[in-house]
């Protein structure tokens, strides 16, 4: 019990430390870029209630797994407010690519020709950044999406994004770990455990919605909606 408490304390300190560190490193630079507003936001408190939090659930499709060689193809997002996915906020944006889409297009069905009407990475990031202040971002397997988003931000604005996020994969991993289970952590596998339906199609938006539904399911199992806090959901800070 005591050890658990220490760990909890450590996580709190770490979360705040990382935020301050990121803030200290980039806020000067950021102030003269479009990323600036993100650095002027107060840090989101770990004790904030789940039901009072606005979540921005994001999924990115890339041309491959290597951020050095590959790039963002599309991004989909949807907002959760008061524990409800607001379907009207669902957005699906295609990213204009310089290089051919390559192998990954076979999976996502995004062809070069489809991307012709797409927006530039900078435009997409600008639209996304408008929604970030006051929101907690949500990803499934955040590290991959973060790599691509931050790289794109640095390339375009010479400064990474600053935000808090939760990772449905990590929530699931911890839950399974507590149960002493090791099971698949892919999105579809996680969803199955909560009896969520099969997703009808695979694209950035569908997967973002699928992740949002997974988060709601996880939240209902983590605690009562009236006292579930962000700290229960492994709130982290992007870096």
């Amino acid at each position: 019990m005591h050890r658990l408490h220490c760990e909890q304390g450590l996580v709190v300190v770490l979360y705040n430390l990382i935020y301050r560190w990121q803030h200290w490193r980039f806020s000067q630079k950021a102030n003269v870029t479009p990323v600036g507003p993100l650095y002027q936001q107060p840090v989101i408190s770990r004790s904030q209630l789940f039901s009072n939090t606005r979540f921005l659930v994001i999924d990115c499709e890339m041309s491959g797994l290597n951020p050095k060689k590959c790039q963002l193809l599309s991004i989909g997002w949807v907002i959760i407010e008061h524990g409800r996915i607001v379907n009207a906020t669902a957005k699906h944006l295609l990213v204009h690519a310089d290089r051919g889409t390559g192998e990954s297009s076979k999976i996502h069905g995004l062809l070069d020709s489809n991307i012709a009407g797409a927006k530039s990475v900078a435009t997409v990031l600008m639209l996304l950044m408008k929604l970030i202040p006051g929101s907690v971002l949500v990803f499934h397997h955040a590290s991959l999406d973060l790599c691509f988003l931050q790289k794109a931000a640095v390339e375009n604005f010479r400064c990474p994004l600053l935000f808090s996020y939760v990772d449905t994969m990590m929530i699931e991993k911890k839950r399974l770990h507590l149960q002493g289970n090791v099971k698949g952590l892919r999105l579809a596998q996680c969803r199955q455990r909560y009896g969520l339906p099969d997703v009808m199609q695979h694209n950035a938006l569908s997967d973002a919605v699928a992740t949002a539904e997974l988060l709601l399911a996880q939240a209902s199992y983590l605690g009562k909606p009236e006292n579930l806090r962000l700290s229960d959901m492994l709130l982290s800070c992007a870096h």
Partner: peptide, 18 residues
């Protein structure tokens, strides 16, 4: 709006806080 409730819970259609 999409919501999720786990088995055993009661759905309150009119009193969701906020």
């Amino acid at each position: 709006l999409v919501a999720f409730s786990k088995s055993g819970s009661e759905l309150l259609l009119d009193s969701v806080p906020g």
